[in-house]
Simulated scan of single mutants.
Amino acid sequence: MELGLAGRRALVTGAGKGIGRSTVQALHAAGVQVVAVSRTQGDLDSLVRECPGVKPVCVDLSDWEATERALGGVGPVDLLVNNAAVALLQPFLEVTKEACDISFDVNLRAVIQVSQIVARDLIARGAPGSIVNVSSQASQRALTNHSVYCATKGAMDMLTKVMALELGPHKIRVNAVNPTVVMTPMGKANWSDPRKAKTILDRIPLGRFAEVENVVDFILFLLSDRSSMTTGSTVPVDGGFLAT
């Protein structure tokens, strides 16, 4: 399916690794001009070597003022992927203020800030746009030791719907993808123990975790005009986990 993304300009957060990096690579291959945002300069350097023409921006999205300085003049952006996130896992009774602060700053507040920057520019230009928030199956199912992470992703799902409601009249669509465990390098490292993996795999009807391209394909579809009647949706990419 031809998605017709060539010539557009996209911004991807959390672009240094995993889903974000693969999304940048796929957009670049589709002829999109990409602004790649990461807090790790080394990851951006290697990404630019792989994808010449990508514009790197190194910033810690938990820092509101630094983010405003780094992205406030980023220029016209048509497509936004809010992928940056942290997962600080603690038993509920041991959750710390620091874990709450950094999780909500990156997983939710930064989504609001970066989306505001992009949406305000789209509205000023009178241009349509598409925003995809990378959420999780953890937004809708309780997972042990994930209380703060689940809370941030649950909030992201509702934020997605409110953004879609308010930005829709400006022809800006907002959707979320909600993956299960994804076999990024981090995913493989965190879920390589068969006993730990079994706790999730037993709840997935398809019996396997997601590959990165399963998620990236949905992100690109939601960014494209092929999904022009879809907004305010949270799309599971979970092998049926949320159906059980």
Rank of each mutant, 00 (worst) to 15 (best):
I200V: 13
I19S: 04
G232V: 08
N83R: 03
G232K: 00
L220G: 00
L201T: 02
A243V: 15
V235T: 15
S136A: 07
N175E: 05
A26S: 04
R49C: 14
D238R: 00
D225L: 02
Q25S: 07
G239R: 01
V182A: 13
T230S: 08
G239N: 03
D60T: 14
S46W: 14
S136R: 09
N133Q: 12
T199P: 05
E211W: 04
V32E: 05
R9Q: 14
I117L: 14
L47E: 05
L61I: 07
E166A: 05
D101V: 14
A29Y: 11
G31M: 08
K161L: 01
V32D: 01
E94V: 15
L159Q: 00
F104N: 10
V114Y: 06
S227D: 05
V132G: 04
L71R: 10
P128F: 03
T40D: 15
G53Q: 09
L242G: 02
N175K: 09
V32G: 06
I204H: 07
T23P: 09
V181A: 12
D202P: 09
T184A: 07
N133C: 11
M163Q: 14
L80I: 03
P236Q: 08
A210F: 12
E68L: 14
A99Q: 05
G168K: 01
S103I: 01
R39H: 10
F104K: 12
L3T: 01
Q41Y: 02
V162L: 10
V59H: 00
E98I: 01
F209E: 07
V177S: 06
V86W: 08
V54I: 12
